[in-house]
Amino acid sequence: MSAPQPVPPSWKDIGKSSNDLLGKDFPIHGTQVEVKTSTPSNVAFKVGGFRDSKSTAITGDLEAKYTDRKHGLVFTQTWTTSNVLRSQVELENQIAKGLKLDLSTALIPDKGQKSAIVNLTYKQPGLHTRAFLDLFKGPTFTADTVLGRDGFLVGGEASYNVTEGKVTRYATAIGFSAPEYAVALHGLGNLSIFHASYYHKVSPDVEAGAKAIYDTNATTSGVALEVGTKAYLDSAAFVKAKINNAGILALGYTQALRPGVKASFGLALDTQKLNEPNPIGPAHKVGASITFEG
């Protein structure tokens, strides 16, 4: 008898290992501070602020999340400095095992703009499917499904405009995931953009990955390529580096200063413009991120 199949990742998480390796822990666009706290009554607060180094604009948000684990209920309320009010209600494993209901809304009072999206997620061994209904845009119905068996993944996504009565977007993906490595191939944008990604856990202390993107609609020919690596210096610190075919080199360093306090620093250099008089711009970027969690 074969072993039970695990629940595969969702559509958005196919290729997640490579995406996280190449996309996270590079705070190169500005300075960010985030504070997370929680109360004994299952309420968690998160306050975040970000200063964009290019525009010098400062943005922030305040989030409160209440979790009722007994009844599978999560309620999240967010208020941003751009006066956007976001609410999210999640209910999981109450109607049926593996089924999650999610209602996400957003309101901009001074502009009268609003949005509401109903999400359904159903997970079982070998299956992960989601459905989204945008009530005010279209309305548009989007669904994606991922099937998994013995590490192999096959997925697809499609959006249908109810008013126009036609499919407006579709995509597909295949992949393979193992404890030490993962590969994925995506066909996005109505199969006009193709992503290929690879992730390898070389050792407990070293990870490597790469991504290639080919856009059939691009004005310039060729494939965009990016490779990167992550190395743990010790249990509290790691460094990351990546470079793409345009010559942009990014470096990241993350250090746990103490339990609950983490600092990250990032630097991006255009290796084709290293002779610019200003070493940090406009071709180069630098930033930092500090997270406090209690």
Rank of each mutant, 00 (worst) to 15 (best):
K166F: 09
G23Q: 13
I28E: 03
S53Y: 00
T219W: 08
N217G: 13
R169V: 07
A263C: 09
I95Q: 06
T129P: 02
H29A: 15
L249R: 04
A236K: 14
F194R: 07
T172Q: 09
K46R: 15
S87C: 06
A143R: 10
R149A: 13
I174N: 04
F141Y: 12
Y198H: 12
D20M: 12
L22K: 09
L127T: 02
S2M: 14
A96W: 08
S289H: 10
A182R: 01
S192A: 13
F176D: 02
L99V: 04
T142M: 08
D25T: 11
T37P: 06
A246L: 11
R149N: 12
G228E: 00
D25I: 09
A218K: 14
E164I: 04
S159E: 09
E63C: 05
D270Q: 10
L257W: 02
T78Y: 03
I248S: 08
L103T: 08
K242T: 04
S197L: 13
G247T: 08
V239H: 01
A131V: 11
K230P: 05
T80Y: 01
I28S: 02
P279C: 10
L22S: 13
S192Q: 14
S10F: 11
T254H: 03
Q5A: 14
H71P: 01
N278P: 06
F238V: 01
S41M: 14
P8S: 09
T31G: 07
N245V: 07
G247V: 08
R149T: 09
K70H: 09
K16Q: 15
I28D: 00
A231T: 14
Q94Y: 08
K166L: 11
Q113L: 12
T67L: 11
L269K: 04
W11R: 00
Q94T: 11
H29V: 12
V223E: 06
K137A: 11
G98C: 04
A116R: 03
K242L: 04
Q32I: 06
L185Y: 12
E157H: 11
E92C: 04
